[in-house]
Amino acid sequence: MGGETDSEDVTDLGHDASGHALLGRFVARRQQLLGFLRLWLPQDLVEDAFQECYMIVLRRIEDFDRSRDFDAWVRGIARKVAPKICKRHRRERPVLPEELQERIEQALQEQDLRCDEDLHHLQTCLEGAQPRHQELIGLRYHQGLSLDAIAERLHATAGAIQVSLSRIRAALRNCIERRREQVQ
C-alpha cells in the first residue's frame, strides 16, 4: 500500500494533522494514563475507563485548546470518567480531598517524561526477576488483589507485602535503567 493512499484514509477520520498527533500521543501515553486511572479505580475497571477516555478525547479533540497541556487535559477527563465507571459497575471508591487531587496533578505535571517506563525493558526485567517477585507482581497486577488479599494468600502481613512490592518496584526501576544505559 502506498503511503499516500493511507494518508488519505487517516484524514478521512475527520481530524486535522494536529488532532491526529494528539490522538497518537494519547495512545503512546497509554501506560501513564493506566497508572493514573489506577489511583481512582479498581484494577479491573481501568481498561474500561481507558477506552471511555479515548472515546471522549476522540470526540472532543477538535475542541482542545492546543496551547494547553494535553496530558493534563486527558487526566481531567479521566478524573470525571472514573467515578462514572465505578457507579456503572456499582463499585465504591473514596473521594479524594481536593487538595490531594491537586497535589497529585502537580506531581504529574512536573513529571520528567524520561521516567516513562520502557515496556520492552520492563518485560525483560520481569522475566529475570526472582520467582517470588514474579508471584507477587502477578497477584498485584494480573489478579488485581489488594495487599490484604495477597497477605492472606501468602500467610504474611500486609506490611510485609507492601515492603516487598516496594523493593520489587525499585529493583525493576534499576533494571530498566541499567538496560537503558546498555542500549545507549
Partner: peptide, 29 residues
Amino acid sequence: RRAWAALIAIDGALLETYLGDSSKAVPVL
C-alpha cells in the same frame, strides 16, 4: 512528588504489561 510520579509510571507500565493479556498466567500459589 517526583517519587510519586515515578510510582505511577512504573505501576502504569506494569498494568500495561498485564492488562488484557491472558497469556500472562499468574502462578498457582
